[in-house]
Design a protein around this nucleic acid. Structure first.
Length: 333
DNA sequence: TTCCCTTTGAAGTAA
DNA sequence: TTACTTCAAAGGGAA
């Protein structure tokens, strides 16, 4: 059943096609079943933005102006770092916003599934033209193009390795939350008192930890039917939050000017996402092309290429504005 | 003209 | 249940 298109033109709907979408859906000659055909005819409903995407949208312009950078890849790197340097309260705002996004999205498009968009974009290039299977094996500590048997490359507890531990040095701002946050001790969440354990593997019981700090996603997942964890009382059908009026996804204007209205951060701790680790590591970080950042703990800048120059600029920008260099782990030996 | 890059998070699939 | 994959934004750069 097509998601009963409400009269509300939700910005998630992209009229013509997804950006970059290969014409004809990219499935030339394969539009066999009428079902697929019907699918193609349906308007493309975009995924709701997640917390980081909302943050990016809001902050991108600022970073661009501050850093005089234009390339999104570089900007996103900076934003990614800044994201981690945000206090938990600040991040919680975006998680909260994103959660409401999803709620609204699911209300507008009850039948919509992220799966509907699968294949709408060109399949990601994964082989980089070389060592096609190495992409899965090459972590930050593996040389690119070195095949590693699955048994070896994935220690059973890789999921405990926080993404940013592998990508960023432990000195990353994650370890230095601005404040022990009372916000997270939301009415819904059972006041976590740890706050100084940003990384689960620092403690013994990751599960116990997880219950306290994992982001909403990890809580809702096992409970998808309910959409939200029971503890996270899904902001009752309450009147639409003020910031939703100019809905963040609504292109016609009003970008989210900051979710100042979020009264309580009912979302759980947004900082940690253990399950993201492996997924991230699938892509051997390559900065070779445009942003060859210096390897971690290998500061000596030796390159004089323009690209490197640019990366240094972006780095500098990021450093001077957010945090000490630490996560430039784009090691590339 | 089209895809890649780069980031994190949500949700999907496969085993 | 775990691991992995895809897509969401964005725009310069490469093919």
């Amino acid at each position: 059943m097509p998601p009963a298109q409400t009269s509300v033109p939700h910005p998630a709907i992209v009229s013509p096609a997804v950006k970059q979408e290969p014409r004809d859906g990219g499935h030339h000659g394969k539009v066999s079943s009428p079902v697929e055909k019907a699918k193609d005819d349906r308007p493309h409903i975009k995924k709701p933005l997640n917390a980081f995407m909302l943050y990016m949208k809001e902050q991108r312009a600022k970073v661009v102006s501050e850093c005089t950078l234009k390339e999104s890849a570089a900007i996103n790197q900076i934003l990614g770092r800044r994201w981690h340097s945000l206090s938990r309260e600040e991040q919680a705002k975006y998680y909260d916003l994103a959660r409401k996004e999803r709620q609204l999205h699911s209300q507008l498009y009850p039948g919509w599934s992220a799966r509907d968009n699968y294949g709408k974009r060109k399949k990601r290039k994964r082989d980089n033209g070389k060592c096609d299977s190495a992409e899965v094996s090459a972590g930050p500590f593996s040389p690119p193009c070195v095949l590693t048997p699955p048994q070896e490359r994935a220690p059973t507890h890789t999921h405990l390795t926080h993404t940013h531990l592998s990508q960023a040095s432990p000195a990353s701002s994650l370890d230095s939350p601005a404040t022990p946050t009372t916000a997270l001790a939301s009415p819904a969440a059972p006041a976590p008192t740890h706050t100084d354990h940003p990384h689960p593997h620092q403690g013994e019981s990751s599960s116990a930890y997880a219950e306290q700090v994992q982001p909403l996603s990890l809580i809702t997942k096992p409970n998808r039917a309910g959409r939200d964890h029971p503890l996270h009382t899904p902001q009752p059908p309450a009147p639409q939050p003020s910031y939703l009026h100019p809905h963040p996804l609504i292109r016609s204007g009003a970008k989210i000017s900051g979710p100042q209205s979020s009264s309580s951060f009912s979302s759980s701790h947004p900082h940690y996402s253990p399950h993201m680790v492996s997924a991230r590591s699938r892509t051997p970080p390559i900065f070779s092309r445009s942003f060859p950042l210096p390897p971690m703990s290998a500061p000596p800048p030796t390159s004089t290429t323009a690209a490197h120059h640019q990366s240094e600029q972006s780095l500098h920008c990021a450093l001077t504005q957010s945090q000490p260099l630490s996560l430039v782990t784009r090691t590339k030996n």
